[in-house]
Design a protein around this nucleic acid. Structure first.
Lengths: 346, 346
DNA sequence: CTTGCTATGAGACACGTGCCTCATTATGCA
DNA sequence: TGCATAATGAGGCACGTGTCTCATAGCAAG
């Protein structure tokens, strides 16, 4: 039996005794209130170190009857990936209810940075403890995030990256995701030589550019017999997609692979199906949705590069909570993995 | 602004008022104490439903000064995957400290069911709130788990499955994992025809058998030009591994793929390196370890089927905690994914 | 010396629940 | 009807922290 009794943790009372001060002073130090001599602050901090004191968050939250209200600011689009995210948020809302965490979704217009900035500006610490923001990077949004943080509201870029926040965001490395798509496609194509079509919704966003970059790097370095064509942009419109894709297919009869880079693979894939593209052409898309899952099963799609929606959501919540509680979150836990889905591991 | 104020949750006091009973009776019902008329129990339960009452776990734990002590019973083996697990446990121990969760590792001898059963039998509710058990399935262990649960200690099969507990365990579907290995291998091999070597540590365990089953099914159904050879067993011994592998390679000069099924890929892979196996032979292994990661990078390995050690550990902790707290855990969160690692998404 | 200020202490109450005791009421049985 | 017992109520203390108020030092300037 190597199992030891639970060590019972020191309380603020112990801390006060150890530091030779009163509980009131300990409280002033712990919660960063004014009017304590530097000397006293140091003494208390030393006692914290010495005792290994960790504040009992449960008790603290109970006393404050604190609850966490988080808002997910998401684009209005109706795509299935976003739908997944929203479902996971609702799920997480139920899951985290026991921890007094409440989540709301607020739809923003991703093409209107001004309204996004307005929305973020309207949030105050009293109503909202934190916001996860999924929005393309613009100066306005970046500023709004900074001001939000200054007002004491936790802010976290979500899925869409923002340059400013180094490691401080939730999502995958899109460069690596693109490279993985390239590798998977290259490996599936095998020895065949030919062109690879790349279909995007738009190449404006940082995410698209990063994916494309990673994809190209991988193809160029490791599959020199493949030739990645310039990106086609659908702008989310079915007719436009149909026309550019069919034109491109006719222009490149040697196409051996298709990479659907957009997070909404439904439109391009449906069109490919309509156009009756040869099954031997390898197709890789992004994100796990009912549509892509079905496509994997009926083999109209060979592989999917995905990020787990549930994990994204829960990770964002844990990080926001971590910020509010002023404690560090565990890096490795919050590292979102680039998943590869084949027909067998859906 | 669609953001609403936090709904403050009903307390036991509200519950008492709503049910027309006293707080003492509410307490009796909530904590399943004896001596309450069925009629009253029903009234309280109805009020719980009506108000949507959820017990405040933080407050409850505070009152009980409850803490959770979990033990991970793991094999003694020194393999790298297990090492990863242990590191993640230590990490999780720090991470969950804020929730009053403490984790210990206890090493068991996986080949001695009797001693495992003894160890499990020695645990009492007072010392330990839950155990995650990684052990091959035997009647003794199965019984010990049942008795553990009867004594009020949460028990959870971990990574190694046990038949009894339907969905009640933490780990991947090994059948699907084997199939994924098969698919990945088949896809990488491409059109080439030939034999596939399968290297296992031992075929005794349920896990090995399931992986093999899934692997064979996938290869037979979808890659008829490949022929999966009988499993080689290394029993974890380097010399034995060397002899069986080299014999097998000589006997099957048409080998185009190698599937290392054991969780410890180091020994077989090192030997393959020694034997200077052609790089064109596709090699798939299991588990992310420093060794397999390096092998992916230097391209002596083409793909890895993995389960995330950190996720496994945290999932086990959350589930054990869920059992102790008598609340259900969210299925989708605890579904361990079968990860595919290629060189680009390590 | 008083006045005014800063730094600290002492103490109380609250948060929601568990758990205890003691008193009171309801119920069943002879 | 009376009595034993079962069922319930009333109330208090505890858990660890946050957040008040009020008192009491210490200290410097006038």
């Amino acid at each position: 039996m190597t199992i030891q009794k639970p060590t019972l943790r020191p309380t603020t009372k112990d801390l006060a005794k150890a530091a030779g001060v009163s509980r009131a002073t300990v409280d002033r130090v712990l919660n960063g209130r004014e009017g304590v001599k530097q000397d006293t602050v140091d003494r208390v901090n030393k006692a914290i170190e010495g005792l290994g004191f960790v504040r009992n968050l449960q008790a603290a939250n109970l006393a404050k009857s604190q609850s966490y209200r988080f808002v997910f600011a998401l684009p209005r689009s109706g795509d299935q990936f976003l739908q997944q995210i929203i479902e996971r948020i609702e799920e997480a809302d139920a899951l985290f209810a026991a921890d007094h965490v409440w989540c709301d979704v607020h739809h923003i217009d991703e093409n209107d940075p001004h309204s996004i900035s307005n929305f973020l500006g309207s949030l105050s610490k009293e109503d909202v403890s934190g916001v996860a923001i999924m929005s393309p990077e613009t100066p306005q949004v970046r500023d709004a995030i900074t001001r939000l943080q200054e007002r004491g509201v936790a802010a976290l870029p979500f899925i869409s990256n923002q340059t400013m926040m180094d490691a401080h965001w939730v999502g995958i490395d899109n460069c690596a995701a693109g490279a993985t798509a390239g590798l998977l496609l290259g490996q599936c194509v095998g020895a065949r030589r030919g062109s690879v079509m790349v279909i995007a919704e738009s190449m404006q966003s940082r995410d698209s550019m990063e994916r494309r970059m990673g994809f190209d790097k991988e193809i160029n370095e490791n599959f020199p017999h493949l030739h990645a064509l310039p990106s086609l942009e659908t702008y989310g419109q079915a007719e436009r997609a149909r026309s550019v894709i069919s034109t491109n297919l006719r222009a490149n009869p040697d196409t051996v692979g298709i990479y659907v880079m957009a997070s909404e693979a439904r439109i391009p894939l449906s069109i490919l199906k309509e156009l009756d593209v040869a099954p031997s052409i390898i197709k890789i898309a992004h994100e796990r949705t009912p549509f892509t899952q079905q496509a994997l099963r009926d083999r109209t799609l060979d592989g999917v590069i995905a990020q787990d929606a549930g994990h994204l959501v829960r990770s964002a919540i844990r990080r926001l909570k971590g910020i509010v509680d002023r404690r560090q979150t565990l890096g490795s836990q919050e590292n979102i993995r680039i998943e590869i889905l084949l027909r067998t591991n859906i």
